[in-house]
């Protein structure tokens, strides 16, 4: 699903996603970023910079498609909602 993301941009040009916001306004902190690489999503389609993240204890992938569009592979229910 597509999400809004709070992103920290460093002066070296890298971006660190900090928090995501779902379409209903709920926000979730990103507890940890375990890695980042360019990849295709095998679960939901699409490609981009893939961040392996931990959100509320759930490991999932957060994708930066470019032009400000981000999506997560996990479904909303995965975060206990």
């Amino acid at each position: 699903m597509y999400v809004d993301v709070y992103v920290f941009h460093t002066s070296e040009g890298s971006s660190l996603p900090l928090k995501i916001r779902l379409y209903n306004g709920q926000t979730f902190e990103i507890d940890r970023i375990k890695g980042v690489c360019r990849a295709a999503s095998t679960k939901v389609g699409g490609t981009g910079m893939r961040y392996s993240v931990v959100i509320k204890g759930v490991e999932t992938y957060l994708f930066d498609e470019g032009e400000g569009r981000w999506f997560v592979e996990a479904r909303r229910e995965a975060f206990g909602m």
Partner: peptide, 15 residues
């Protein structure tokens, strides 16, 4: 090299 490129395209672009 051909194999690395083929795998990279598949992994990064899903194609």
């Amino acid at each position: 090299v051909a194999d690395i490129i083929r795998e990279t395209v598949k992994f990064e672009l899903g194609l």
